Amino acid sequence: MKCTSCGSPDLQFLPGNYARCNSCGNTLAEIPGATGQYAPPPPGYAPPGYAPAPGPQAFVPPPMPPMWQPPRKSSAAPLLIGVAVAVALLLAVAAAAMVLGVAQAPVPATGYLPTTPPRVSTGSGPPPADVPLSEENVERPSVMEKPAPQPKGEFRDVRQASVGGNLLWVGKYVNTGDTVIVDPSVTVSLFEAGGKRVAEQPGFAQRKWLEPGEWTLLMVLVAEAPEYARHEIKVNKPRAPSYETKPVKLTVTEWGMRRQWNSNYAVGTVRNSSGKSVKWAQVIVYGFDGQGQPVSVCDSYVTEKDLEPGAESGFSVMITTLAVGTAERYEVLAFASPD
């Protein structure tokens, strides 16, 4: 015989035609007519000495809490109420007194404090001296800063000419603003009949520093100008000084015109009368016709690079043939950079 659960032949026979497997503990009942096989025990079977587990116990509810009882009245309650009422009355009286005091207080007069306190006579002796108040104790009105003036320039008395296939414009650039202008310039644009731009040429003045109201002659040259239908002249945005230093004006002690190699030259002498050392002295020559209209402008540098205070140097400036008319009068100016 073998165990029907694990197949082990190690069985222990019990009274009542039962058997128990010593390997897995399975209990078998002998089946009549079976060949050495055992079936499970009938319902309700229990091995000897087996006691069933006790069943569930009945629920016993916990005891009810005690009934609510009203608290006993304290003998100190009336005393606390009286103290609270007294404190409230005191606060109300204090608040009313403060309101009346503020309403009766005089309103301070507006305006500025006097710069000196009033003098009080003390009897005999000289009166006390005026003592100025501190700057921290005097109220000052707020002052809005004015915006910095913007440089303004105009290009006036402009005349045009064609010289050897080149187009030339000469005019007077005037500083019409309230601040200095550096590097004054204008631009000439040429257009075809259909509006297409065919040339764009800027022109810069030889004089690089213009105080308000000052002027300089300026020339624009369009070399080998193309065919065009119209032109426009625009004053480039004037620029105020940023890093530039004001040039030093030199004295032109003497000069004259000299003809050499079919050209005219302005030859003369400049002196450094500024009292400071300068360098790179520049001579500018303006040409005007009989009506005082500008016709040409040219420039060159003096012979000496550095000029100490009181020193002199010669110069020679070739008068350009690029002019919009015949010059009958010339003006010569000289400027230098401070050393």
Rank of each mutant, 00 (worst) to 15 (best):
V138Y: 10
E227K: 04
R197K: 11
L190I: 02
K152W: 08
W169C: 05
V158I: 14
P151T: 12
G164I: 08
M144R: 15
A205E: 07
T179D: 05
E214F: 06
A205Y: 05
V220I: 10
K196N: 07
G203L: 07
E211F: 06
R230Y: 06
G177E: 02
V188L: 12
P151V: 12
K146W: 09
E214A: 12
T187R: 09
Q160E: 13
E224C: 01
E135R: 11
L217H: 00
I181P: 02
G165V: 02
I233W: 00
R140I: 14
A223T: 10
E136L: 12
G195F: 01
L218W: 06
G213P: 09
L210D: 06
D178I: 07
T187K: 07
R207T: 14
T187E: 08
P147F: 10
W209D: 01
E145H: 11
A225D: 05
Q160M: 13
L133D: 10
N137R: 15
F204E: 09
P212L: 09
P132E: 10
K152D: 12
N137V: 15
L210T: 03
A229I: 09
E214K: 12
M144G: 14
D178G: 09
T176A: 05
P202I: 00
E224K: 12
R156S: 14
V222P: 04
V220A: 05
P147S: 12
N166Y: 05
